[in-house]
Design a protein around this nucleic acid. Sequence first.
DNA 1: TTTATTCCCGACTAAAACAATCGGTTTTGT
DNA 2: ACAAAACCGATTGTTTTAGTCGGGAATAAA
Lengths: 140, 140
Amino acid sequence: MKLSTKGRYGVAAMYELALHYGEGPISLKSIAANQGISEHYLEQLICTLRNAGYVTSVRGAQGGYVLSKDPAVITVGDIITTMEGPIALVDCLLTEADRNSYCEKAGACVTRGVWAKVCDSINSVLDSISLADLCREEKN
Amino acid sequence: MKLSTKGRYGVAAMYELALHYGEGPISLKSIAANQGISEHYLEQLICTLRNAGYVTSVRGAQGGYVLSKDPAVITVGDIITTMEGPIALVDCLLTEADRNSYCEKAGACVTRGVWAKVCDSINSVLDSISLADLCREEKN
DNA sequence: TTTATTCCCGACTAAAACAATCGGTTTTGT
DNA sequence: ACAAAACCGATTGTTTTAGTCGGGAATAAA
């Protein structure tokens, strides 16, 4: 299991924005340079974040991107979910309805319990860490 | 984040073998039919498990596969790691040396802590569940 | 000894996801 | 006017996924 660059770059970019929260817009170019990411590629990713309402763009010279919300209320889980879709290790865990329903397939149903536990554990870690937490860590 | 069929089918097949542990070899055909998996595809997967020493094959008519160890000492984590490689969400967490080293990239290093936490949490769940646990669950 | 069963092995492939790249358009501060 | 940015759509090379196909070798049962 690997995390794709979508998720990693997404969190990296958001972290960069969080570091400069309140200092006006940060350009794509500086984020990309700082994190060593292709500018054009990052553009696509940050577009997803914008559509999800986590960042706001400022066009024109001296423009860039700004967090739409306070770093304390954006979690790593929010970002990962936006970039990679819901953390559902298997399809039958995608919706709440699925989780409560009974699986037809004999053995599959038993193993499903395992995947559910893993998903819950991943989510609880990701949701417990905010961008503000990351920034705080940097200072130490 | 999704689990590939390698991991899912691998665990499903091992679970099937665990259910019939001590009853002689189980054929690929019956495992595949029971779990609704392509026989030829499953063959490749189980080959990986065999190379890793988790299953033993018995050739010839009435042959099949048998668990090499007691279901109680094979964990879901063992199987997933065999099928999908080590759970390292990002490359710089692959080895123990990497984990202890310091990252050069400024922001990347801070986010790495997040990925390490998630990996540890996944592993602790996967390693805590044995095939015997799954079989026990079935009976309830 | 023949035959049916079952594992063994290597090659091939279609489709999707991943990770970009490229080129041009629009907006806006200086 | 000009340069700095964001915006947008199309295209592309590579890798992974999830198989398929076909023949070969071992062995139990007839």
